[in-house]
Design a protein around this nucleic acid. Structure first.
Length: 635
RNA sequence: GCUGGUGUGGCUCAACGGUAGAGCAGCUGAUUUGUAAUCAGCAGGUUGGGGGUUCGAUUCCCUCCACCAGCUCCA
């Protein structure tokens, strides 16, 4: 007998060699029914995995992330099997589970159409119906290669060849289909009751644009049809929050064919933007930042000095002035370096925090543009912090806290990534290591979890990235902290130390919002257009029941307006239901209805976009409520 | 940039080898109305641009542009 410690801490005895499924059955019949995999001493295993020693065991259901991955990984094999049935000439790429589903890559001359996807769904249903058991087997390297060569799967052969010498090479067989796979898998294909093939997209083999582009089929699967229906419904709901849709509906911003990737901000959008900037300036003043503004265009020589010419010119726009070459800035740092160099500094001046709302232009690939999230001109809420070596950690921590404060203000969830040295970079390995460690230590010191994003740093230094989610759960980098030993060298920045000698300052680049444009995109989707009151383009809209009350409504409107509130008054000769409907569609924060009883009692009947009906309030109470809400930046 | 898809009045969409239609929005008039659409009338489009096939193209073909999904890239 072996001892199995379960997730709740209880200990269960079982015969040596018992499978996870058998243990699940012995705990509860229902649990065994829902089980999709197990976690043995922290490692995910299939339900048929035999427990040989004392261990910790967690039974995984579809609701558990690891369980869901196993379920969908098996789903991807079902997809591949279906494709092989219908398109035997298709060559297999890879087919992993991802956060919200799974995909499989195929190399195939024929292009998958919507009709093909429908046919594949049917074929997959047959495979599920057949309930093929998943049979695992291992092969030595040469045999494995030979096996896949015989099946004419060149991509699989390449994968096997690239596996480390000592790797166990395993395969999973389900009916007439066998795939190279580390597993684990479901015991059989039968549990995958609901499958939806979502889309086909091109994807480079192994993620490199130098390789052939394969066809990737994205899909989702669930144990129950109902779960799939709910998922699809949720997706539809999420799409209603899309900032491109809401931006149009609320008239916040616009794009025109004349300027792809160049957003126009409309009056309502400018209110949001200006409120954000006002808040930003105040918050920076409180934290000891100065503010500057540097030009959009500087000569090309300077971009050689900064290193941008060598490492970034494909993303830059250029222009000529009097036959001399100039570039439009893609980043604010070089301008900030010139500003720094205008005078001498003492170590006593440090840390020196210099902020800039800087508009930059970058040539992004046409296919990468996405509403306000990725544009070709955007405003970074930039700052450069010049400091002494011993100030590095406290400054980084200060910025992390600043970002956290701002994101919490909106109730954002975020995750942090640490991006390390890219292939195309400046500086020595030692400098990169020191800089990377400084960032890492600051995060570790605060006990903040982060993931490492290898090779994704800026060309001049490693960075901490703060990622926020959009309506579909896609994440976008917003805040970033970048430690830079390179650009201060290139511009020969100095300060006078306590020893009277010249030294090189350490510099930090950082943004909080990241880009105002992207941040507004995220805000819009996060709040579905129902912005916190302090940001709302229209805070109050007064609606008259009939034209009789127009004069009184205008008078109230003026009073509210004089209190600094953004007010509109709708005195049109329309039914009150119609006006309410319209105001709601405009996502006005507070709707005030004014009719006979309100005029007599000097009140208004209020409806909040977030709280619904609030009843009848007198004007002073209403103003006080709104002012408090604005003051608190409540959301 | 790459792969696939889409492009019809301000918005959402219909039609289709025979020269475009609806709803909403807009304008005009009537209605004076109590919590998500009052009624009627009017106006609005060289069907993304260019080229080709055809007696005839919005429809078929080519090309360019933009947008959407994904890849690559990134704030």
């Amino acid at each position: 007998m072996i001892k199995i410690t379960l997730k709740d801490g209880s200990v269960k005895e079982a015969e040596q060699g018992a499978t996870i499924l058998e243990v699940a059955k012995s705990i509860h019949h229902g649990l065994a029914k829902e089980a999709v995999a197990g976690k043995v001493n922290g490692k995910v295993q299939g339900l048929d995995y035999k427990l040989e020693d004392d261990c910790e065991l967690e039974i995984l259901k579809f609701e558990d992330e690891d369980g869901r991955h196993t379920f969908r990984h098996t789903s991807s094999h079902v997809l591949a099997q279906a494709v092989k049935h219908l398109f035997p000439e298709a060559k297999l790429g890879i087919g992993p589970a991802i956060d919200n589903g799974f995909y499989y890559d195929f190399d195939l001359e024929h292009r998958f159409t919507d009709e093909d996807l429908a046919a594949l769904e049917k074929e997959m249903a047959k495979i599920v119906q057949a309930n093929y058991p998943e049979e695992r087997f291992e092969l030595p390297r040469e045999e494995a290669i030979q096996f896949m060569e015989e099946k004419q799967e060149p991509y699989k052969v390449e994968l096997i060849r690239d596996l480390p010498e000592d790797a166990v090479i395993s395969f999973y067989k389900q009916g007439d289909f066998t795939d190279l796979c580390a597993g684990p898998h479901m015991p059989s294909t039968g549990a995958i009751k609901a499958i939806k093939l979502m889309s086909v997209a091109g994807a480079y083999w192994r993620g490199s644009e130098k390789n052939k582009m394969l066809q990737r089929i994205y899909a989702v699967s669930f144990p129950k049809q109902k779960q799939l229906d709910e998922y699809l419904e949720k997706l539809e709901e999420a799409k209603k929050r899309d900032h491109r849709k809401i931006g149009k509906e609320m008239d916040l911003f616009a794009f025109f064919e004349e300027g792809p990737g160049f957003p126009f901000f409309m009056p309502n959008g400018m209110i949001l933007r200006n409120e954000l900037e006002t808040f930003w300036r105040q918050a920076h003043r409180e934290r000891g930042y100065q503010e500057i503004k540097t030009p959009l265009i500087l000569n090309v020589e300077m971009w050689h000095t900064s290193g941008h010419w060598d490492h970034y010119k494909d993303n830059m726009y250029f222009t000529k002035i009097d036959d001399n070459d100039y570039a439009i800035k893609p980043m604010n740092c070089p301008g900030s370096m010139l500003a720094y160099k205008r005078k001498m500094y003492s170590y006593r001046d440090f840390p020196m925090r210099v902020a800039e709302m800087g508009q930059v232009h970058r040539h992004e690939l046409s296919g990468a543009l996405h509403g306000l999230m990725r544009v070709r001109t955007f405003t970074q809420d930039d700052a450069h912090i010049f400091m002494l070596p011993e100030q590095i950690t406290s400054e980084i921590v200060g910025v992390i806290d600043f970002v956290d404060y701002v994101y919490n203000l909106f109730g954002f969830k975020y995750h942090i990534e640490l991006s390390t040295r890219p292939e195309d970079s400046m500086g020595t390995a030692e400098e990169w290591e020191v800089a990377t460690n400084a960032l890492k230590e600051a995060l570790d010191g605060k006990g903040i979890p982060f993931i490492i994003n290898e090779g994704d740093g800026a060309f001049y230094g490693p960075k901490i990235d703060f990622h926020l989610e959009d309506c579909l759960g896609r994440t976008w980098q917003c805040g970033t902290i970048q430690l830079d030993f390179q650009i201060p060298q290139r511009f020969d920045l100095t300060y006078i130390g306590s020893d009277g000698e010249k030294h090189r300052p350490i510099m930090l680049h950082r943004v909080i919002f990241g880009s105002i444009e992207r941040f507004i995109g995220i805000l819009t989707e996060h709040f579905a257009g129902k912005f916190p009151l302090w940001l709302a383009p229209v805070q109050v809209k007064l609606l008259t029941v009939t034209e009789k009350f127009a004069e009184y409504a205008e008078e109230l409107g003026n009073k509210l307006s004089n209190e600094g509130l953004r007010v509109e008054v709708d005195v049109r000769n329309e039914k009150i239901g119609y006006k309410i409907r319209e105001a709601r569609n405009e996502r006005v924060s507070y709707i005030g209805v004014i009719g006979e009883k309100e005029m007599e009692s000097g009140t208004l009947t209020v409806r909040s976009s977030k709280e619904g009906e609030l009843g009848t309030l007198n004007l002073d109470d209403f103003i006080a409520k709104l002012k408090k809400e604005i003051e608190e930046k409540a959301y």
